[in-house]
């Protein structure tokens, strides 16, 4: 049991590091691909952590914070999912089964912070602003910004500590078709993420490049890295052509 406590503390710290990404430049190291590796590192199975991280990353692909929409809390999902698989030596697919529901649950908690606690802090800051007290705002901002991350990582750590024995009992009674179903879903869900990203980027002129990328990999078996390098060439050609065109247009205006 002592062992579990140590692991829970390490897991809490990793989660805190992950949540802090938005305090140190939105570096996206809260994504499962990095979180999985960090959990693996502290729990002594780096390789498994990396592999699970990569799998979960694809599942959470479409989870991006744009405008007022907040994605499932992937830090908690990735951290607890990965940690559980490593600690109880479970199948890698189990990480997906756990990560998706956990991430959705913790988002509810985070939503409470973002709709009640943080606005409340902002209203305190408003009072300081009205008094011209910049130091007061500095204080409130630091407490609010770091505080909500402390709370979230404690939620992750405590859930892990209390949850692991419980998860093991629950998983023992879950029928095989459900756990296998999550495995199958993990293969399909990336399509949803890709569709969400494509929605952001597609225009009538550029939709052909989506198909080109698909065909290069489907028929020629080109790895994604190769396609990305090819895409870079295409992008550079486009930039060059467009720049020449705009320079001409500006010249035309001048004369």
């Amino acid at each position: 049991m002592n062992n579990l406590l140590t692991q829970a503390i390490l897991v809490t710290l990793v989660a805190f590091v992950g949540y802090m990404h938005s305090y140190v430049g939105s570096t996206m190291h809260n994504r499962p691909i990095v979180m999985g590796a960090l959990v693996g590192l502290v729990l002594g199975d780096l390789k498994t952590g990396i592999i699970i991280g990569g799998t979960l990353e694809l599942v959470f692909m479409g989870a991006v914070p744009i405008g007022a929409s907040n994605p499932p809390d992937m830090v908690s999902g990735a951290v607890i999912g990965t940690a559980f698989v490593i600690v109880s030596d479970a199948e890698i697919g189990m990480a997906v089964t756990l990560a998706v529901p956990i991430a959705s649950l913790v988002l509810l908690f985070d939503n409470f912070q973002m709709s009640v606690l943080l606005p409340w802090m902002s209203h305190i800051a408003d009072k300081y602003a009205a008094q011209g007290d910049a130091d007061g705002i500095d204080r409130v901002t630091r407490i609010a910004s770091i505080g909500n991350k402390v709370v979230l990582s404690l939620v992750v750590g405590i859930s892990f500590y209390l949850g692991v024995p419980m998860i093991e009992t629950i998983l023992a009674v879950i029928p095989e078709w459900i756990t296998r179903g999550f495995d199958v879903a993990a293969g399909i869900i990336p399509a949803l993420g890709f569709a969400m990203l494509a929605k952001m980027l597609v225009t009538k002129e550029t939709v052909a490049f989506l198909l080109l990328g698909f065909l290069l990999t489907a028929y020629l078996g080109l790895p994604t890295f190769g396609v990305a390098l090819g895409g870079l060439v295409v992008a550079l050609i486009l930039i060059n052509n467009n720049n020449n065109n705009t320079v001409k247009e500006i010249d035309d205006d001048d004369f």
Binding site: P190, T206, F209, T224, V234
Partner: peptide, 22 residues
């Protein structure tokens, strides 16, 4: 715009390599 083209090619490639339905 150019970066969008690059991104779309990568998405296309990943649809082929990362989505699996057996």
């Amino acid at each position: 715009k150019a970066a969008g083209v690059l991104g779309l090619m990568v998405i296309g490639s990943m649809v082929a390599s990362q989505v699996s339905i057996d």
